[in-house]
Design a protein around this nucleic acid. Structure first.
Length: 501
RNA sequence: GGCCCGUUCGUCUAACGGUUAGGACACAUGGUUUUCAUCCAUGAAAUAGGAGUUCGAUUCUCCUACGGGCUACCA
């Protein structure tokens, strides 16, 4: 086998990509880049019934937004294309025939209904129904029928599937890159269907054939595939191929309670579980992007779900993640999704983002909400004053509304506390002081006003509290002098006079 | 039911078989900010239970409990 690292992310286009899928893709990408390998996208659309239009595009868009686009795949053809399984149908048939010829697979004519009956009968007797060595000779397949009969039924158009003939009395030692050795008794394996009666392969066949043909070196996928690993290893062996290395990632669990994270959890808990918004006729599922998350924050957060660098560093760029990533440091137990931590990561990236870039987005909100228009320069200054208390761009308006319009009401409690009998006189005097300031910078304004307060021998609170209240409408916000100077002399004075009326 | 995987603070996790079991989120308290938030400091908070191996077990083995996954002509 070649030394080159080639990994694939192989989602099924049955709906929006779940955040767990995004993490699987991320780990594949990190592993590929770490080893100077290739990250391949393959679309596994062998189930025609579950195909959802738009899902494939969604997957591509999601990877693009996250910042780790695939290098080879649909629309980015390499020498192993096509990369969509429905376009590779003929290939699977050919390989399936090989397996039949070598005696590793056989035709089975049992109907879905007849198997269902057997299954429910077994269940009633508290037994487990498995289609394998212990009963395959009592069922309707090419192992019991003679060759002529089989050919006749097939040419007749009888529905059939192809099943894998799983071996008997063998202990398989599987090697997982994350979990180590796993022992499996082949007697508990069932004769999985490889080829469906609709002429399409199942996941198992298509997956193995493609991974081999596409020269995949490492299969990094979710833990839900661990039970299939024995089958897959057996398939490689039956074909006479070297198997790639396998790594099964722990699952992402619900934040509270038990079980896998699902779409419902997001709806219920008010947080996204999809990278991008997904709309159907009935529902809209929120996305990290639309909720205001920065892709680098989502990536960082996801990387730490099931992996850690072994140091105390928590903030990593994609490049740093690539540098530090190691499959050996992926842990093996499921991780609960913590929306609070996701927010924290976003805040870290948000405050470090350039004011100008944030202002580009915030400008849209300001334009839609404010009654007047404001310059980009002004909006950028507002952003620099309030961004450290925000997690998302959408938080900015509530934090800085007063920069765009004068308060229309005052916080009642604060008003009672700040406005005393002598306040009007003091404020009137303050207006004169402000009017007299020539060099209207934050520092200078601060110096002059503080000097005046000191000279008057009154408490700072007597002036500062009503001043803030008049400018902001509440006891919150950035430094008062920063507000005054950004608002400007005229607007500030107007607001001070307004509160006195 | 069967098979497989797992289990360290509430959560994400760290710890060559020898540590006062570390960090982060969240929480609490204090400081800074004469506001709020940020920020800083401090605090509370964990090895599921039981055997075994060992001088010594969070770490290795087994059992139990609990959790998860799979058990489709889904992926």
């Amino acid at each position: 086998m070649s030394q080159e690292v080639r990994v694939r992310f192989a989602p099924s286009p049955t709906g929006p990509l779940h955040i767990g899928g995004v993490r699987t893709a991320l780990f594949n990408y990190l592993f590929a880049k770490k080893h100077k390998g290739t990250f391949v996208l393959r679309i596994e659309d062998t189930d025609q019934n579950r195909y959802v239009a738009g899902a494939e595009q969604y997957i591509k868009d999601a990877l693009e937004w996250c910042g780790f686009p695939y290098e080879e795949g649909p629309g980015k053809e390499g020498k192993f294309g096509p990369y969509t399984q429905s376009e590779r149908k003929h290939i699977y048939k050919e390989y399936c025939d090989k397996l039949i010829k070598s005696g590793n697979a056989y035709y089975a004519f049992d109907s879905v209904d007849s198997l269902d009956v057997l299954r429910t009968t077994c269940e009633a007797e508290k037994k487990t129904f498995i289609y394998n060595w212990h009963n395959r000779l009592e069922l309707d397949n090419s192992l019991v029928l003679d060759a002529d009969e089989v050919t006749k039924r097939i040419t007749n158009g009888d529905k059939y599937v192809v099943r894998f003939k799983s071996p008997q009395d063998e202990i398989l030692i599987l090697e997982d890159e994350i979990r180590g050795k796993i022992k499996i008794d082949t007697n508990v394996l069932d004769d999985k269907i490889l080829f469906k009666s609709d002429g399409m392969p199942t996941y198992h066949l298509a997956n193995i054939v493609d991974d081999h043909l596409m020269e995949i070196s490492h299969v990094i996928r979710g833990e839900e595939w661990l039970p299939s690993m024995a089958l897959h290893i057996l398939l490689y062996r039956s074909f006479g191929w070297d198997a790639p290395k396998f790594a099964h990632l722990p699952l992402i669990l619900k934040p509270t309670g038990k079980g896998k994270l699902s779409k419902r959890d997001g709806d219920k808990g008010g947080f996204p579980v999809f990278p991008l918004e997904w709309k159907t006729e009935e529902t809209t599922s929120r996305g990290f992007k639309e909720d205001g998350y920065l892709p680098e924050a989502v990536v960082n957060f996801l990387a730490f779900l099931g992996w850690n660098p072994g140091t105390e560093q928590e903030l990593f760029t994609l490049e740093e993640l690539v540098e530090s990533f190691d499959l050996k440091r992926v842990n093996n137990s499921g991780a609960k999704f913590d929306p609070e931590k996701a927010k924290w990561f976003n805040q870290q990236y948000f405050v470090n983002k350039e004011d100008k870039i944030i202002a580009d987005e915030f400008e849209i909100i300001v334009t839609s909400k404010a009654k007047k228009s404001f310059s980009k320069e002004y909006i950028t200054k507002v952003v620099s004053l309030v961004k450290e208390r925000a997690v998302f761009v959408k938080d900015l308006w509530d934090l800085s509304k007063f920069f765009f319009e004068a308060p229309t009401e005052y916080d009642a409690k604060a008003f009672k506390k700040a406005i005393k009998e002598d306040t009007p006189v003091l404020m009137q005097e303050l207006v004169t002081v402000i009017e007299g300031i020539e060099d209207f910078t934050s520092e200078n304004t601060q110096a002059i006003i503080k000097e005046w307060i000191t000279a008057k021998e009154i408490g700072f609170g007597k002036v500062m509290q009503p001043l803030r209240l008049s400018l902001v409408g509440a006891m919150k916000g950035p430094d008062v002098f920063d507000i005054i100077t950004l608002l400007g002399k005229e607007e500030s004075i107007k607001r001070i006079e307004t509160i006195l009326k």
